[in-house]
Amino acid sequence: MSYKRSDFVPFSADSGRVGANLEAAYEQWLDAQQQLATLPVSMYWQRKASGDYLAVKQRSSDPGTTLGPRSDATEARFAEFTQRKAELKQRIADADALIGDRAAQYRALRLPPIPDRQAEILRALDVAELLRNDLLVVGTNAFIAYSLLCNARFPAGVEETEDFDLAWCRGSAVSLARTNAGAPQRSSLMSVLQGVDPTFRLNRKKPYQAVNANHYEVELLMAPSLAPLPKGEAFEPMVSLTEQEWLLEGRPLSVVVATLRQRACPLYVPDPRWMALHKLWLAGKPERNALKKPKDRRQGEVLLSACRYFLADTYPLDIDFVLELPAELRDLFDAWARAGGFDPTRPTA
């Protein structure tokens, strides 16, 4: 089916301003966190028989490395480290307070939030510079970003979910890193997950999935063209899912949303047009779980309709877009267009 414009409920006129302010506060927080992450975990004086020595730990698990005996130079280095770390922690605290205020405004406008469990992981991925460079968010959580982009509540598609899917994108046109899939990376996905929750382990029966002690699942999907993953990644995503290639087309979208507990969370999601058709294709995939198919179809139809009514300038469903589609997706688009009386040669009519 094709949804009507009246099926979408516009957000408040203030929603764009509130969302932009939340994003600005989050970027301040992210910048300070990323700078803090480049500092050693600790620097301290270690007493030895011959006197005090300056020691440093790059990570909490490190045994510590000696930088030299106490001297004007090592005291200056220790003072510089202590001051820099204190400054960054204060910047983070200030940004956290600002985020809390702006997230409260966001929630007051009844804009769509994201659960805090997903948000904590996504923030950690962003600090580690994996989100946007190596990974993008796919699945139901992405629909929060699309709803905000359209400045309207969807009639369906933003249902809350208790787990989420990530797609590998490094080496593709939608990665901000623009490097090949085998390039070295700072952290692995599993190391970030275990930094958030040490109980995360790879599901040996489904090596594309990590599960924690509470049975919370994080899945990593991968397009065949990007295989294999870099060395050091524990995940083994299936590389036979040709449909994942479609989520690497077009122009991805980056937004910041509030969480249920009034924090901020980044989302980096695929082009809404390609996501919509991807969902419609999944709804007809024979191997797809039959219980998921109605939701897939509903989400695809809602998102295509949202592109039609709200994103004609930024994500047009025009003839140029249609000609880019592979045959299996073009048939789905044509069926949707016929059902809704939509003509891609006159997309704004």
Rank of each mutant, 00 (worst) to 15 (best):
M1Q: 06
R5S: 05
S6H: 06
F8H: 04
V9S: 12
S12E: 09
S12Q: 07
S15K: 10
G16E: 15
G19Q: 14
N21M: 14
Y26D: 02
Y26S: 03
D31Q: 13
Q34K: 14
Q34E: 13
Q35G: 03
P40W: 11
V41Q: 10
S42I: 00
Y44T: 01
R47E: 13
A49V: 01
S50G: 00
Y53M: 00
L54G: 04
V56K: 04
V56M: 11
D62S: 09
P63L: 07
P63F: 08
T65C: 00
P69Q: 01
R70I: 06
T82H: 09
Q83S: 15
A93L: 01
D94L: 05
D101Q: 15
R102I: 04
A104M: 10
Y106R: 02
A108D: 15
L111M: 14
I114T: 07
P115E: 12
R117F: 11
E120C: 00
A124L: 08
D126C: 08
E129L: 04
V137H: 03
V138F: 03
Y146H: 10
L149G: 11
N151R: 15
A152S: 15
P155G: 07
P155A: 06
E159I: 08
L166S: 11
C169I: 14
S172P: 12
S175V: 02
L176H: 04
N180G: 06
N180D: 11
A181M: 04
S187Q: 14
V192Y: 11
L193A: 05
L193N: 05
Q194F: 04
D197T: 10
D197N: 15
F200S: 06
F200Q: 06
R201G: 04
L202H: 03
N203Q: 08
R204M: 13
K206V: 07
P207T: 12
A213P: 14
N214T: 15
E217I: 13
E217C: 11
L221D: 05
P224H: 09
L226P: 03
A227Q: 06
P228T: 08
L229V: 08
L229I: 08
G232H: 13
E233N: 13
F235Y: 12
V239W: 03
L241K: 14
W246K: 01
L260M: 10
Q262R: 14
A276S: 09
L277F: 09
L277P: 06
H278V: 03
L280T: 09
W281Y: 14
G284T: 03
K285D: 09
K292Q: 13
E301V: 03
D313N: 14
Y315G: 03
F321P: 05
A339Q: 14
G340N: 01
D343T: 07
P344W: 04
T345G: 07
T348A: 13
T348E: 15
